[in-house]
Amino acid sequence: MTKIKLKIILFVILMVFGTQVQAEKNVLCIQKFLTKTVFNPGPSDGAWGKKTETAINQLMSQANNFESQNIKKSDAEKICKTLSGSQGSKLHEIGQFKRFPIAITEDIGEIKSLTDFDFTNITISTNVTYKRCAFDIIHSEGWRRAKGKVGIKNGTLVFKNHEWYAGLASSGREHLLNEEANLKLTNTGVHGILPHVSYVAEGEVDKPVQYITLGKNYIKATKPSYFEEGVEGSNNYTDRYGSTYTFQLSFCS
């Protein structure tokens, strides 16, 4: 009876101890693997500590595109098998560099231009449709700020494509040019006559949106005769700096 009891106790002790040794072996296997990566497991001592747990969770999370992991000491055997198996070399490769996930919580917001141009929903004349017209925005001093092509569909402007021009930085109007179509011009910076050529697919709106408000102020041309009455014409508007511009449509077909 005593002998049997002793044997059982010894067996249990061996089992527990053996399992513990095996567990330590698995932890050591993980730690040794991690020391060859950028994820620091702390000392390779076979003891499952906070550092080891954090490091292996970070590695496996990175390998799985930042899916959160919850690897515990009880998973050590499974993890050791993974690291020693066919996925080991790939995990080793992944472990050479750290990836920091993107977690943008702030609102990036709508990207707005400071300009006052908005070509959307400009009604020129109801029930008028033209496939293509040319438009220009001319500064009061004569230089063209923008040109491009629009269609008119049932009286509403529809972008075809357009190009935005900025004038010479040396003209002394940097305060205007700074806001010009996303381009900063300085006397020493990106120089000369710089256009902003922006691709705008048909029916789409440029982004950042260029705002201009014409609408009801649009002056329908009656003269000269080559402007078709009610469609082609021009409209003067004044920006917040007091500069006057002319928006004009021409060559509708």
Binding site: F100, P101, I102, A103, I104, E106, I108, I111
Partner: peptide
């Protein structure tokens, strides 16, 4: 700067690029 994660931010002038970051 727009905060990307606890370690890195991005200059606020990279607004389009930030949106691309947000949309993977």
């Amino acid at each position: 700067p727009l905060k990307l994660n606890p370690l890195f931010g991005i200059h606020p002038n990279f607004r389009n690029f930030s949106k691309m970051l947000k949309s993977n």
